[in-house]
Design a protein around this nucleic acid. Sequence first.
DNA 1: GGGATTTACTTGACATGTTAACAAATATCC
DNA 2: GGATATTTGTTAACATGTCAAGTAAATCCC
Lengths: 165, 165
Amino acid sequence: MSSKSLCGQSNKDIALNSSLPPTRRSLPIALIRAREQAMQPIREMLAATGLTEQQWRVLRVLAEAGPIDATKLSDRAGLLLPSLTRIARSMSQKGLITRQSDPKDRRRQVLAITPVGQRIIADNHVHALRIVDGFKDRIGAEKYEQLLDLLEAFSAASDRDNTDS
Amino acid sequence: MSSKSLCGQSNKDIALNSSLPPTRRSLPIALIRAREQAMQPIREMLAATGLTEQQWRVLRVLAEAGPIDATKLSDRAGLLLPSLTRIARSMSQKGLITRQSDPKDRRRQVLAITPVGQRIIADNHVHALRIVDGFKDRIGAEKYEQLLDLLEAFSAASDRDNTDS
DNA sequence: GGGATTTACTTGACATGTTAACAAATATCC
DNA sequence: GGATATTTGTTAACATGTCAAGTAAATCCC
């Protein structure tokens, strides 16, 4: 099998039968593409509110979970703690959330949504529902659920060495 | 403040069965989580090289596709053009890629991988293969391919729909 | 052929992603 | 009790994400 000399000169053996998958079949790239597509209508919705996607996710989680500390919130919203620190400061200044240190453990910052924040969610509720419907329409409701299941399974499979007492 | 009271009292048209999905079943969040999990071993691999994930993707696509213009590269690597502009400048200065304007169309910037860049890919080839194997092990090879198919289908279904108010 | 439009980047401004270093409060251990 | 380690969050520094505006080259169109 003569190699095609992909990029020019050095057609050294790159271990023929064990080559990296084409970038079309790269999971990271596929995830990034899908995220880009999914975010697009959400950003359009949020443009009118002045919120970013991340700030919207913070409101969504707080509305769902009630007051929680920053670490749990960052985990549930898919944010890193340093990002959340800045986002929370900004949202607090805008009156969308409140921050108070936990009296039981003063390291913890307990965050909670305000009525103003709840109002934003309520105002965009119907629009958000239509966006989710749009997701389902893209590949069908069944495959959509299947996709969510697979993503969840992939992310959950990170507990290898969890032999706690 | 009060407890959960998701949207409160105005249940006029939002009503009963039409509530937003729990954040656990949110596609954007699920995609972000999965991406975070997938990137983790890749970042560990790249830590020794000083490259970022994005720079690695640029090298991967250029090695696969040969010299291409910035727009196509950004599309295939899952980057926005403004990001690629800066990344390409940085990588060009490091000698990982080359940039030259297309004589046929001088608006276009044709980017290509250098031997130095190819060397980085070759050096990390085996490690990268192991990472991909790790992905498959997380949920099984079959579900892994299924996940890629669904992601691809979701991203491809973007030629329609005009969700407007 | 020349103005209007489109394309292909580029740049700027700001928000977030990411890692490392750090401070403060708590937990552990002797 | 007090030194040490761990947890929780913050800050800093830099790279990227994102949108808007800008520039230069090609295309359209009469």
